[in-house]
């Protein structure tokens, strides 16, 4: 009994010292008595050899076929999952309220108030603009924050690291993992042609038009379809076209990483502060000093116009930033 306990303890101790399997699946090999007849050893060895080959063969088989079988299983399961989900959803869709019917549950008192009182409550002619920037402004603030989060994250991943790449690799790396990423393929750099006359001519004509269009869409966001998000996307295409026609250096002169960060953060900050004021006054039933204006005028809709401009700045900068970071690795 005492011997057995000692054996278990030794096995456990060995495991703790890092040279044995874990105790729960530990099989303690019976120690061969020292006076064992020599003739019995080959037999013992034979069984061990046999076991080893079986295990080896299993491992070999697993190495060759394991991935294949896993792939088949995975494909089958995925297809099954997709079929099940699609058929479930089709069954759901068949039961949903009919398409385009005016008595559907979604057309309720909430919508009636948005349409009937939206005009004089928010001052916006475009009901959707009033909805997203006044009634449900917190959602839209969150949405701009999503874009901000993504911009910051992409900048972190692509911006800083690649610029530092040259100097980190010339230094002896402290982390062993860095040593292994040296064999990375070189980044494909944008080949910029200086003699592309057609592109430049078209760009010089269209960039002002695109910029104007973008500004119109942003500024008229509360009167007509459009707003900060769509207008900002249009503005960013002008920047991208400029970068392609005249080179990223030209855009750099007035829009680099620093200006991007400053403009996005400032615009979002203005958004946060002005909307924070409006949330605060609304919740505490304090009269807000922001005038609503007359519907249909360019200066109407309370905060909607400035908010659209802020959002337009954020979106334009972020989308151009994505383009520049992905194609050049720099802004």
């Amino acid at each position: 009994m005492n011997e057995e306990l000692k054996n278990i303890w030794r096995a456990f101790f060995n495991w703790v010292m890092g040279n044995g399997p874990r105790p729960e699946n530990e099989v303690i090999p019976p120690e061969p008595p020292p006076d064992l007849p020599f003739t019995q050893k080959p037999h013992d060895k034979y069984t061990r050899f046999h076991e080893a080959t079986l295990k080896e063969r299993y491992n070999q088989w697993l190495e060759i076929h394991g991935l294949h079988i896993f792939a088949i299983l995975y494909t089958g399961l995925s297809v099954l999952t997709c079929i099940v989900i699609v058929s479930l959803l089709l069954a759901t869709v068949a039961e949903l309220p009919p398409f385009g019917h005016e008595r559907n549950p979604a057309n309720n008192e909430v919508i009636r108030r948005y349409v009937e009182h939206g005009g004089h409550e928010t001052g916006a002619q475009n009901i959707v603009a009033g909805l997203i920037l006044d009634y449900r402004a917190f959602d839209t603030f969150g949405e701009s924050a999503v874009l901000f989060t993504a911009a910051v994250s992409v900048l972190m991943l692509l911006g800083a690291s690649r610029r530092n790449k040259t100097d980190t690799h010339s230094l002896p790396s402290s982390n062993a993992m860095d040593a292994y990423s040296i064999h990375a393929p070189p980044m494909r750099h944008h080949t910029f042609r200086k003699d592309d006359v057609i592109l430049r001519a078209v760009a010089s004509l269209s960039i002002p038009v695109i910029l104007m269009m973008g500004c119109v869409v942003v500024i008229n966001g509360h009167l007509s379809p459009g707003g900060g998000f769509s207008g900002g996307a249009i503005l960013s295409t002008a920047l991208i076209l400029c970068a392609n026609a005249y080179g990223f250096e030209r855009v750099h002169e007035f829009f680099n990483e620093r200006t991007f960060i400053v403009s996005s953060s400032t615009a979002l900050m203005i958004y946060a502060l002005s909307k924070g004021y409006s949330f605060f006054t609304g919740a505490n039933h304090i009269h807000s000093v922001i005038p609503k204006g007359t519907i249909g005028n360019i200066l109407s809709g309370g905060l909607i116009l400035p908010l659209n401009i802020c959002v337009g700045l954020i979106v334009a900068g972020t989308l151009y930033g994505f383009y520049a970071l992905f194609s050049e690795g720099d802004m």
Partner: peptide
């Protein structure tokens, strides 16, 4: 209904 337009934008 204007609400889905807002949701799509988000």
């Amino acid at each position: 209904n204007p609400v889905p337009a807002g949701l799509v934008l988000t």
